[in-house]
Design a protein around this nucleic acid. Sequence first.
DNA 1: GTAGGTGCAAATCATTTGCCGGCGG
DNA 2: CCGCCGGCAAATGATTTGCACCTAC
Lengths: 171, 171
Amino acid sequence: MTSLERLCQERGLSMSRQRRLIIRVLSEARTHLSAADLHQRVTELDPDISLATIYRTLTIFEEEGVLKRLDFGDRKMRYEQADKEPHDHLLDTTDGSVVEFQAPEVAALLATIAARLGYRLDGYRLDVFASPDDSRAESARACVTAVQPPAKRPRSRHHHHDGREHSAPGR
Amino acid sequence: MTSLERLCQERGLSMSRQRRLIIRVLSEARTHLSAADLHQRVTELDPDISLATIYRTLTIFEEEGVLKRLDFGDRKMRYEQADKEPHDHLLDTTDGSVVEFQAPEVAALLATIAARLGYRLDGYRLDVFASPDDSRAESARACVTAVQPPAKRPRSRHHHHDGREHSAPGR
DNA sequence: GTAGGTGCAAATCATTTGCCGGCGG
DNA sequence: CCGCCGGCAAATGATTTGCACCTAC
């Protein structure tokens, strides 16, 4: 039995044929899936599953703490198992792959900053955009979640200025 | 002349009646406005401006580096003047207000982390969720951008588990 | 047997676009 | 004058929901 199934049981969630399939696909996926991704894969195993069911199930699983919802900013939510070690995501801007990393310093720093402003840290949302440092081979390219790189829309017209992108990479 | 107008001129953007109004409203706003917010306010000054124009203008202004697009995760984009000092946003989870803050340590830390993973930092997207630390009065409540706090949808049912929320506030 | 789960289609919501007449430089 | 600009309405795309039927426990 997969850990996801176990999680569902612990939450007392009833298991239908479609939920079992959804869990199976999620368990086998090595990337963060969106509702559409999931629907496509589940449909291959059983063509009679509605997208609405996928959405309803994902929503319930998230509310029950079985899944965690991810928002990489490309307007489609992704999901990952909720009981993993807390981590953040680095998005490779060259191919949309996602690397998970643990860095407790981040939360620590943000807590400090929040305190400095008179607040108590409740949580945060962070996406790190980065490109491979060609000065050496990548250690372990993992989670290839096809996140469309934060590219500018093709819309062009004139063009008088230089191109400063993204949010403050800071000096 | 406002700095936004100046920015537009520098970019060689043509100024129509509607663009002038949009710039005026943006300049007067002390919060981060969404297209709908902007449209509502502009409409009060001139009822004949289409939402499509608002969107097209915001898009162009962003492409031209006049405005910066913000995504607070509530599926509506907000905008702020692009020539401000680089900063991040702290979202007050109790009332949706937004506090801007500068913290070069963040970019520095993320650059270090990226390097550790074999990447070069291109940029990042960060939202800090926090609640007022009641142990003292807030210094200066500023930008009250009504961002709907990352609250769980009302959808309730059973409830067997404890409630761990948000992304890793870290241990 | 009954509350909860599911399929289907229609509805939302933010945002985009085609078309076409009108204005700015 | 001419190409960019703006209005309107229809189109998108992700996600949600109303309704009636079906099934897990």
